[in-house]
Each structure stands twice: as structure tokens, then as C-alpha cells.
Deep mutational scan, measured.
Amino acid sequence: NQESVVAAQLIPINTALTLVMMTTRVVSPTGIPAEDIPRLISMQVNQVVPMGTTLMPDMVKGYA
């Protein structure tokens, strides 16, 4: 089963992602794949992401 990127903390809107903000977990439905974490660093979220929420492609500016 593929791991997806999950918020390790509350991420406010327009925050640039850092490694410490993200963790990985096997979730359903699947979100952004864990191997894309290096690509996500410094990208901004376009909404508030509560802790434990799976990051979906449409939540990250410039990802999709």
C-alpha cells in the first residue's frame, strides 16, 4: 500500500511547506504520494490544513 503525505500539524493558509509539517501514512483515499515530499518543500497550501489531514493535489499551489 502506498503512503500519502499527511499534515503533521495545523498548516495555516498560504504557508510554505517544510519537512517538519508533513508525515506519511497509508490512507484512503490516497493523496499526494510520499515520494513527492521533496517536491512539496517550499510550496504553499491554498487552504487551512488541519493536523492529520491528507494533502491532496488541489490543496498545494502549483502542484497539480
Score class of each variant (00 low, 15 high):
Leu10Glu: 07
Met59His: 07
Gln9Glu: 14
Leu10Arg: 12
Leu40Thr: 02
Met51Asp: 10
Val60Gln: 00
Ala7Ser: 12
Leu10Ile: 07
Met43Ala: 14
Thr30Asp: 11
Leu17His: 00
Pro50Met: 14
Ala7Gln: 01
Lys61Val: 09
Glu35Cys: 15
Val60Lys: 01
Val49Met: 03
Lys61Phe: 05
Glu3Phe: 11
Leu40Ser: 00
Asn46Ala: 09
Val48Phe: 09
Pro29Val: 13
Val60Leu: 10
Leu55Thr: 01
Arg39Lys: 13
Val26His: 05
Met59Phe: 09
Thr15Lys: 04
Gln44Leu: 14
Gln44Thr: 12
Ser28Gly: 07
Ile32Gly: 00
Gln47Phe: 04
Ile13Cys: 14
Val60Gly: 02
Leu55Ala: 01
Met51Gln: 12
Ala8Asn: 09
Ile41Pro: 03
Pro57Thr: 09
Arg39Met: 09
Thr53Asp: 10
Thr18Gly: 04
Ala34Thr: 08
Asn14Trp: 10
Gln47Leu: 08
Gln44Ile: 07
Thr18Asp: 04
Gly62Pro: 05
Ala8His: 11
Met43His: 09
Ser4Met: 03
Val45Pro: 02
Leu10Met: 12
Met51Ile: 09
Met43Asp: 04
Pro33Tyr: 10
Lys61Cys: 14
Asn14Glu: 06
Arg25Cys: 06
Val27Arg: 09
Ala16Asn: 04
Gln2Trp: 15
Gln2Leu: 15
Ile41Thr: 09
Tyr63Met: 06
Gly52Cys: 08
Leu10Gly: 10
Thr30Leu: 11
Asn1Gly: 12
Thr24Asn: 08
Asp36Arg: 13
Asn14Val: 02
Met21Ser: 03
Pro38Tyr: 06
Tyr63Phe: 13
Thr54Arg: 03
Asp58Gln: 14
Val26Gln: 15
Val20Cys: 08
Val48Ser: 14
Pro38Thr: 08
Leu17Val: 03
Arg25Lys: 15
Tyr63Trp: 15
Val6Gln: 08
Val5Leu: 04
Leu10Asp: 11
Val26Phe: 12
Gly52Tyr: 07
Ala7Asp: 01
Pro57Ala: 15
Ile41Asp: 03
Ile32Pro: 01
Ile11Thr: 01
Leu19Met: 08
Pro38Phe: 13
Ala8Ser: 10
Thr54Lys: 03
Met56Asp: 10
Asp58Gly: 11
Met21Asn: 04
Met21Ile: 03
Val49Arg: 02
Ile32Asp: 01
Thr18Ala: 07
Pro50Val: 11
Asn1Met: 15
